[in-house]
Design a protein around this nucleic acid. Structure first.
Length: 594
DNA sequence: CTTACGATGAAAGGATTA
DNA sequence: TAATCCTTTCATCGTAAG
């Protein structure tokens, strides 16, 4: 591939050239351009000026700086949006950010274009600090007009119409902040268009190049009139952009079992096409708008939603965004038991016929207590045969809530850790020993991949990389991706693993050692400290990554979270942006390197 | 310090019914 | 179509006991 900058973003490296110790790719020749000729689109940077004022909220400030945005932009975004709405701040950063060329600080600028100007030269816009990039004298700039114009521009750039913007400014007064104005419009739209959200049909899981371009324009350049019947999430999503809906049944691009309904081909948006391949995972049932944002960041790739109940005996509804081929997938062998009674034969004997479950619900991080099962036992032992309906309902509700299984007469129990390991496709005792407590095992397992499901998606790599792959594994956890690849028989040449939990790192390290891996495992703790320099060093040492996998924290997305289901901007779940940051760095470095 | 336990609902989607 | 019901959900926090 020619020297291509990442479409979605561009970044400047501190070091000019990277060590050229390798060819930057794998020894296998992967043809990344099988579909179409890749056209390199060059998006110009919108004009920006620098804000002098410093942030007043250092925590918020650090948060965004930690994501990789430059301090200058963060402080400006906070100044303009206030500190309340982190969504707006982030969108501002992403929409208006500019390249900062600061070698010492290794700052990363993320560029999102607001213009579709195919003829303009990207390089022209990569201006140095000394240029009018920082200048306030740029009369065409959108940041130095009067505050009213500024707000108007801001709102229209956010995807609102001029009409909406002016109404909002009228209603909210001259000194309303952009955030307030945006909220006003949002609320207004919500109230007037509550009903019309239901798209006739789920959008196709692929987009043609033209569709993609149009959607880009729609998303970032909307000055045209507002369409009726739209609703916006908190995100400044384009109004006619249909929100992503979950498929029913949740079978992704098709299951191994029914080959007739499988999709074997899709067109990826150009910027999504690798290298590297990437694979991102998170909970399917996230708050509204979250998957739209995730998809938008990950190069507009349509997520694939799959429930692992089609791959094993327990449910696990997850969304996956990846740029892998989807033809010639094959399931991991042996096929695991698909029902509770097959997976846990001992339970069959005690399973009452009024408990009609054949699949377990999602395995979570907490398990039912001994006290609970004792209460249930006492409630049941008063009855000889079938308990009355209300008892049945009580018991069944608890069973479903806590994933209890029958282990004796009137005796229910939560799954044992080794049973969870088996259900999720890990080797027995994968998480056992080495000073790891039972609670930690449940926690780590509950946060993990379902190996068979992931392996099915990754199976296409086997033919592509017969010599093995180099893997960048972010949020590795207990190594679900590594285990999946290993069980697929794909040699692991180099694995760079980033995982915050020491317990999990220990688990992966032990597994690595005891499976006699031939490759190298290098691990890091904190993705926030995983800098561009480190990555560059690794890439030049390892020769590029073939695959970047990661499932970022779901804490603030998961339905079980009563306290901080804050969406993508939540404390832990916002680490998603680091997945994007690192992936985009890899993309950029590798494209430069070629 | 660790571990176990109970209390803490909402949001979203699907299914059913009116 | 709209209202209603039903089900599911990679969790967190404070407390008590060891």
């Amino acid at each position: 591939m020619s020297d291509t900058d990442s479409h979605f973003s561009a970044l400047r490296m501190g070091q000019g050239e990277m060590g050229g110790s390798s060819d930057g790719g794998s020894d296998d020749n992967i043809d990344w351009n099988t579909e179409d000729e890749i056209e390199i689109e060059k998006y110009p940077v919108s004009c920006c000026s620098r804000e002098a004022a410093g942030p007043s909220n250092t925590k918020l400030f650090d948060h965004f700086v930690g994501m990789g945005f430059s301090e200058k932009l963060v402080s400006r975004a906070i100044n303009e949006n206030g500190q309340e709405n982190t969504d707006l701040i982030l969108e501002s950063l992403l929409t208006y950010a500019a390249i900062e060329d600061s070698p010492q600080e290794q700052q990363i600028g993320i560029v999102l274009s607001v213009c579709d100007n195919a003829s303009s030269d990207y390089e022209e816009n990569l201006l140095d600090d000394s240029s009018d990039f920082d200048s306030d004298s740029d009369s065409e700039g959108i940041y130095n007009p009067s505050s009213e114009e500024k707000k108007m521009t801001f709102l229209t750039e956010m995807g609102y119409t001029m009409n909406e913007a002016s109404i909002a400014m009228e209603r909210c007064g001259a000194d309303a902040s952009e955030a307030e104005l945006a909220d006003f419009i949002c609320a207004h739209q919500m109230s007037k268009a509550e009903d019309a959200l239901l798209p006739e049909e789920k959008p196709l899981p692929w987009l043609s190049v033209d569709d993609f371009r149009k959607s880009k324009k729609r998303k970032f350049l909307r000055y045209d009139s507002c369409k009726r019947n739209t609703i916006r999430d908190k995100k400044p999503m384009c109004e006619d952009d249909e929100p992503i809906r979950l498929p029913n049944p949740m079978v992704g691009f098709g299951l191994p079992t029914d080959s007739c309904s499988q999709l074997t081909h899709r067109n990826l948006p150009e910027p999504a096409i690798g290298p590297p391949y990437f694979y991102y995972e998170n909970v399917a049932l996230a708050p509204k708008g979250v998957w739209d944002t995730i998809s938008r960041f990950l190069y507009d790739v349509e997520p694939e939603f799959v429930d692992s109940k089609y791959f094993c005996a327990c449910a696990r509804k997850r969304g996956y965004v990846h740029n892998l081929p989807i033809h010639n997938r094959c399931p991991l062998r042996p096929i695991p038991p698909l029902t509770i009674s097959e997976a846990l034969p001992m339970t069959k004997r005690w399973w009452p016929n009024w408990d009609t479950r054949t699949k377990l619900n999602c395995i979570q991080t907490c398990v039912g207590s001994a006290k609970l099962t004792e209460r249930i036992r006492k409630a049941l032992e008063d009855y000889d045969g079938e308990p009355p309906l209300y008892i049945q309902n009580y018991v069944l509700n608890e069973c479903r809530k806590w994933n209890l299984v029958w282990v004796g007469r009137n005796k229910l129990a939560p799954l044992e850790p080794d049973e969870v390991e088996m259900l999720l496709g890990f080797p027995r005792n994968h998480t056992r020993g080495g000073g790891i407590s039972r609670t930690d095992r449940y926690k780590s397992l509950g946060n993990s991949f379902q190996v068979d499901t992931v392996a099915y998606h990754l199976s296409v790599l086997k033919d592509l990389y017969p010599g093995g792959i180099s893997l960048l594994s972010l949020f590795s956890g207990i190594g679900g991706a590594e285990v999946a690849l290993y069980r697929l028989g794909i040699p692991l040449k180099n694995v760079v693993s980033v995982e915050i939990s020491e317990v999990n790192r220990t688990i992966v390290r032990c597994w690595w050692d005891q499976t006699n891996q031939k490759g190298n495992l290098i691990d890091f703790a904190d993705i926030q400290q995983f800098t561009a320099e480190k990555l560059e060093q690794l890439i030049s040492a390892v020769g590029g990554f073939d695959l970047v996998v990661g499932g970022s924290p779901c804490n603030n997305l998961a339905g079980s979270n009563r306290y901080h289901r804050d969406g993508l901007e939540g404390k832990e779940s916002s680490l998603f942006y680091h997945y994007f940051r690192v992936l985009d760095l890899v993309k950029s470095i590798m494209s430069k390197d070629q």
